[in-house]
């Protein structure tokens, strides 16, 4: 009996692998293998670009990325800074929007569609490349024309206008990257049972208290998930300056080895950063949501 069950298990596993195999082979060849390939490149120096024969040079490329290349580190820091600032803004914005949408307002499903639209439009490289900036600029221009008539432009100092323009740009970035986050928060909010709020209302807790004492603690696991999602999405976004720079090194300067090393430095940083975020925030969040 036992033996037969073992055989059954084995057969089941085999069938499972048969189902996974086509996908896994594709994943291995076109994702894992290139990743390993690039790891190898990052430790080597290509001798002959036509045959890709190379010799190992140890950590040379990694040292070059930090010590010789003058632009890698500034680009890297800017990407990290941008991602963090945008993450905070996206988090606040999408939480706020989710709370508004969650109050049974009119045209709710319409709003859900519109806020998710950028996820559909913005994922295309083509839109980023040929239209993206132009399109976003256009919407900014319309708002600016509405806000600043000629009289206003003459009356207010140019520095202030620049600041507003900067702010509008930042807002556009945030708006265009909040689709998934709004949905995640909305799901979380809908998961909180309304009886908890009713009980709080009986105890005469105001809206503000309800938010701090019920909504926020119960939403904290969802907030952590959203933070992790936003970080990964921001770090791997193709319009990220450090990724653009890494591509430029590879394709325009033909320094494949250096580019691979930079790619790996960045990748290791992402993994480390995301896991640390997860580790440090998990405990307080567990405590908050189980109170």
């Amino acid at each position: 009996m036992k033996k037969q069950q073992g055989g059954l298990q084995k057969r089941k596993a085999l069938v499972g692998y048969a189902f996974i195999a086509p996908w896994l082979i594709g994943f291995g060849i076109f994702c894992l293998f290139p990743v390993v390939y690039s790891l190898m490149f990052s430790f080597s120096e290509i001798q002959d670009p036509t045959t890709f024969s190379f010799k190992m040079v140890g950590l040379q490329n990694y040292m070059d990325a930090f010590l010789v290349d003058t632009e890698f580190l500034p680009n890297f820091l800017q990407s990290v800074g941008d991602t963090l600032i945008n993450m905070v803004l996206i988090l606040f914005f999408s939480f706020f929007i989710a709370i508004i949408i969650n109050r049974k307002i009119r045209f709710r499903s319409f709003f859900r569609v519109v806020f998710f639209l950028p996820v559909i439009l913005g994922t295309g490289f083509i839109l980023d490349q040929i239209l993206g900036e132009n399109l976003q600029e256009q919407s900014i221009n319309v708002v600016r024309d509405l806000l600043f008539s000629e009289e206003v432009v003459r009356a207010v100092p140019a520095e202030f206008l620049e600041m507003v323009q900067e702010l509008l740009n930042r807002i556009t970035v945030v708006l265009w990257n909040s689709g998934v986050q709004i949905l995640l928060f909305l799901t979380g909010l809908q998961g909180i049972s309304s009886s908890i709020y009713e009980a709080a209302r009986v105890d005469a807790a105001g809206e503000w208290e309800q938010f701090w004492l019920i909504t926020l603690p119960l939403m904290s696991p969802m907030i952590l998930l959203t933070i992790v999602y936003t970080l990964v999405a921001g770090f791997t976004n193709s319009s990220n300056v450090v990724l653009e720079y890494i591509l430029e090194i590879a394709f325009e300067k033909n320094q494949l080895e250096l580019s691979s090393a930079m790619g790996w430095i960045y990748f290791l940083f992402i993994i480390l950063f995301v896991s640390l975020t997860f580790l440090f925030m998990r405990k307080p969040i567990d405590r908050a949501s189980n109170r």
């Binding site: 994702c31 990743v35 390939y37 791997t236 990724l243 591509l247 580019s259 990748f267 992402i270 993994i271």
Partner: peptide, 16 residues
């Protein structure tokens, strides 16, 4: 694989 940017592995991918 989700965290490794696809853009970084374009050249090895081309070779394959």
């Amino acid at each position: 694989g989700m965290m490794f940017s696809q853009y970084v592995i374009q050249i090895p991918n081309y070779l394959i």
